[in-house]
Amino acid sequence: MDDDWKRQIERLHEGLVRRDDPAEWVTEADAVQASYRYPHLMLRGPVFGLAVQDPGASADWRLVRSATSGTPQEARDGLNSLLWFQAKDDTDDPGVRRELLAAVAVLEREPVDELTVLGVRYRVVRGEEFARSGESGLEPPRPTDPEPADRSWEGRHDTPSPDLGFALVPGREDGLMAGAMRLALRGFAYTGARFPADVRKDSARARTSHPEVVLLPVGFGVVERSGPGWQPQGALMATPHEARRQLYSGLTEFWPLLHKFDDREREQYAQAGEEFKAAGRADEVRVADTLYRICRIERMIRCGPDGPEPPRPSDLDDYGPTKMHPRMDEDGTLHHGE
């Protein structure tokens, strides 16, 4: 452990002692236990989001779209929609609308990762998603992970994404273990022959160009294992219970329709779903040869002198820019079908 690492760990510890918050100490102890039970990091791959730097509000970069997209173009599409709806709903000034629509037109033609519009900088940002693992597999939720006030099982009662408005400022993590994780991840890079050479090269370069790390809010998702590895199922949720509700809905509603189950399979999945629901705070359920688990998901974004890291040259898209919304005049008139 070098001197810089030691000094930063000591500062984190001093801050934790100074706050003297019993609940925080319990959370910290929970994190320490998890580091022993799930000592390995399992990388899922890159995720992309959208950040904004508004000089009129703050010098910090903040997320305005959650960092959960699988490709850069998905995040660019999010920027396209954000600006289009600003032009449609947020202004009556033709000049303001004209500038917003000019930026939309650029996004319809070009795979740009940064735009300045009305003095505000928007950037597609790149992160990494990973989970911890141990002898029993991927890490489930921890006892100290917060649950929503409404823990119903039907309908949509999703907590707003904690990504929205999150400041991408290194060193603001809560707790000693989170700070230690951030410091450890500064040296992370893709290695091994399973990664293409250009991916490894870009990853190594990012350690220098964007040396700092920001840990994003923890999320929760459904994973399944029917063979040697785990596969994600569904979206990242803000709380463990919302991920449990997603799993319950999958077992009892969506997967039987999606996979065209026969009567026996539908009954099997429905029974498993009801047993999972009745258990209350269960984190896994088995159906035939498939194990489903609620998994704790962590993410990070690299930052450099000019802010968060954008997509890398080796990051791939499934499709390119496209027209997403009807044409709009500067007076706000929409032209459908054009």
Score class of each variant (00 low, 15 high):
Thr116Trp: 10
Pro313Ser: 11
Val214Ala: 03
Leu215Arg: 08
Ala243Arg: 01
Leu41Met: 08
Arg266Asp: 02
Met328Cys: 05
Lys6Phe: 13
Gln271Gly: 09
Pro146Cys: 11
Glu114Pro: 00
Glu10Arg: 08
Asp30Leu: 01
Arg123Pro: 06
Leu100Gly: 00
Ser81Pro: 01
Glu14Leu: 14
Pro148Cys: 11
Ser35Ile: 01
Asp262Phe: 10
Arg151Tyr: 07
Thr290His: 12
Arg44Phe: 15
Pro22Ala: 04
Glu128Lys: 06
Asp329Val: 05
Glu14His: 12
Leu107Met: 08
Ala206Leu: 09
Gln231Gly: 05
Gly15Arg: 09
Leu115Gly: 01
Val106His: 06
Arg76Met: 04
Leu41Asn: 07
Gly78Trp: 11
Glu129Ile: 10
Pro143Arg: 14
Phe188Thr: 05
His336Phe: 11
Arg293Val: 09
Gly165Lys: 09
Ala178Arg: 09
Ala272Phe: 07
Gly78Asn: 07
Thr116Pro: 03
Gly137Trp: 07
Phe220Cys: 07
Val112Thr: 09
Pro310Cys: 12
Gly49Ser: 02
Pro140Tyr: 04
Arg205Lys: 13
Gly219Ser: 10
Arg98His: 02
Gly155Glu: 07
Gly155His: 11
Glu28Pro: 00
Lys6Ala: 15
Ser161Lys: 06
Phe261Asp: 08
Arg37Glu: 14
Asp163Glu: 10
Val96Arg: 04
Met300Lys: 12
Arg132Phe: 07
Val106Glu: 08
Ala279Ile: 09
Arg207Ser: 04
Leu185Ile: 06
